[in-house]
Design a protein around this nucleic acid. Structure first.
Lengths: 383, 383
DNA sequence: ACAGCTTGTGCATACGTAGTCAAGAGTTCT
DNA sequence: AGAACTCTTGACTACGTATGCACAAGCTGT
């Protein structure tokens, strides 16, 4: 009959548990649990009484208690690198939408560039993994599964997750040599679509700002572009190529750099939209007009690609659909709806979105700066 | 001596617990716990033995077990509305950085517009709160605290959190009538800075695209602009004012609409950068030049405001600092470092960032479309 | 040599929920 | 009327970690 056996920690006043509700309703804790889980084996009258007590006391079941008991946290980890990249919101929004719809929670993690700690316990026992802070947080059973969106090709994370039997899915980027479900666009095809269209419009002098070679997106888009050029017998000399991170700044700088080449390219294929927009702004600074002086092509089709001032020709990848697919693949696996052996690789079709930044090359193909030089200087175009 | 009493659920193969480690190391579970928590009262030799077992078995402590025991989850909820708004990455990135640095986890939630469920249990017992799905997830003790970034002024969430004793902080936007820590910029001052500068440059015919009136940011920025204009005796007729959500699209549309007014404003004060960029793009479509034909001012100073093509004059709010401050305020409160009575309202200084979109009005003050009309038509400028 | 202290360790329990098992009360069937 | 059932409920335990308490062993000082 005492009001409370457990002292309520005084910190969070009303820390009502199912035991408290049970006592108030004059039933056992099991019955409270059954009522709340919707178990049919409860008499209607009892159910009413319990629900009344729940309401009166403002009881909210503890998720932690439930997780411990069910060994499921209904939480999904999203691992990204550069959170401030404008690319992410368009991935995170649909990810959140889908996880939420499936009654899962979404937790963000960033994969720090692993700083290769000095051989602390380098002689770890056979079969053991180095547990980085990130891996620790993914493996401490607070997460039911993981979505990897930004793995570099050499990341150890997927390997460890795989070895530990932690469900995970690749989204956007892949890491090879690890069997896992994935949702990606055909990056190589996308890049070749854009490149082929530029060729069709008559471009012969290509420039490219490719992404980092240690990402599958960077590498595959580069491959697609090179393949399309090779098929057309058009060369892409090294001096027309830059590699840079997927950022505005690096796109800007690479473009300034490329435009100093002589003769300069008539079209520049960019690693993604953000890089392309950086490049676009560089042309603005340099006093060059797009597409009159130089054409630009992006990749992703972010909403801002369609903004009037850019009107960027780009390759669309269905990010929303990809994100939602990734969540579904993952939850299927978490909830055991996937035969554990086979992995599912979902590859989406890219689509070329024609807008205003890709047009035929300037008439004559000569550039302004090239005018003062003898034409076809370093050009080795095969006809 | 039996290898395992508990059958390992067969689902996640290696589900090693501290008991397993203890058995392997020949110590008690308590000792394992103490070693891992860094408790000094453990003999060096024992510590070694335990750590060796931990390594060999790849043991990772269960966060759920720990949370249940410590009644702390080290998780912070971030509540936002429109996740795909480009504004958020610049908030989320520093939030994540700081939570991560303080060894907390960051979980994203969205506040759906509460659909006002039909009076289900409208006669809830006195003092009881309607628990929406969001509130349920915030109150189920899986979160140590909450950062509210987008509350509309009429949101019930802060009130309920407050009544339940759940620590929370307002970031960017406020809700009045609820005592809570907050980190916001002085929106009113910021807007008046921008407006005053436009006045100083000679503008007399103002237009404004204000934000939603049910947000503190929208309302306060509107107030600041109106106050500055009133102080200068300059009118802001209703036909020169639009209210719209904080989005690109709505900025674009409102600007098209405003530019059809006759005479049209010589400067348009925008609710934030995204709206301003929408407005900027609209001028582009309409064939108007910025700032030659019309000046535009934003608010926020997103990185893209500095992009060459925009070069947007705007009011900077230190989002990174604000975000990190919010996290610190919250963690102080969670960890009981704040006297529970007093709340801390941190107000940051806005700063006008002069760039290229704000300049003196067109010479003569007459606009092209106004040329066909008698000048000073509806103008009631006091000298 | 003995009281008192320090150090190191294990035992037992709390945290809040889910779910297993058993038991009591009623019901139906033969 | 007794057997077999169904329905409803409570007692109990598992989940994995942290920690208060007790206790054993070693150590110090007089």
């Amino acid at each position: 009959m005492d009001t409370s056996i457990r002292q309520p920690t005084a910190e969070h006043p009303a820390n009502v548990t199912s035991h408290d509700v049970a006592r108030a309703a004059g039933v056992s804790q099991s019955t409270v649990s059954r009522v709340l889980r919707g178990d049919p084996r409860v008499a209607a009258a009892t159910r009413e009484r319990v629900l009344a007590a729940v309401d009166a006391m403002g009881y909210v079941p503890s998720d932690v208690g439930r997780s411990l008991s069910t060994r499921s946290t209904r939480s999904i980890a999203i691992v990204v690198t550069d959170l401030s990249n404008v690319f992410y919101p368009y991935l995170i929004a649909p990810l959140h939408q889908e996880t939420s719809a499936q009654n899962y929670r979404m937790v963000l993690f960033t994969e720090e560039v692993e700083p290769l700690v000095e051989g602390n316990q380098s002689q770890a026992p056979a079969g053991e993994d180095e547990i980085s802070p990130l891996l620790d947080r993914l493996l401490n059973r607070s997460m039911d599964g993981v979505i990897l969106t930004t793995s570099r090709l050499d990341s150890s994370v997927p390997k460890v997750l795989s070895r530990r039997g932690m469900p995970f899915v690749f989204l956007t980027r892949l890491v090879e040599g690890v069997a896992a479900d994935s949702a990606v666009v055909d990056n190589s095809l996308g890049a070749s679509l854009a490149t082929s269209e530029a060729l069709r419009l008559g471009h012969q002098r290509f420039g490219a700002i490719f992404g980092p070679s240690d990402t599958s997106t960077g590498r595959d888009r580069e491959r697609g572009t090179r393949a399309a050029l090779a098929a057309a017998g058009v060369e892409l000399p090294d001096r027309m190529v830059r590699h840079s991170p997927f950022t505005y700044q690096s796109g800007y700088r690479a473009m300034v750099d490329l435009m100093a080449e002589n003769p300069r390219p008539t079209v520049v294929i960019c690693a993604n939209d953000l890089v392309a927009i950086g490049a676009f702004n560089a042309t603005n600074t340099l006093g060059l007009r797009v597409p009159d002086d130089v054409s630009i092509v992006g990749f992703d089709d972010l909403p801002m690609a369609a903004w009037q001032v850019f009107d960027l020709t780009t390759v669309r990848q269905p990010m929303e659909e990809m994100a939602k697919t990734a969540v579904r693949l993952l939850i299927d696996r978490i909830e055991g709806r996937t035969e554990s052996s086979a992995t599912r690789q979902i590859v989406f079709e890219p689509q070329l979105v024609m807008r205003g930044t890709l047009a035929p090359p300037p008439a004559g193909g000569a550039t302004e700066t090239a005018r003062s030089d003898p034409p076809a200087q370093q050009l080795t175009t095969s006809p």
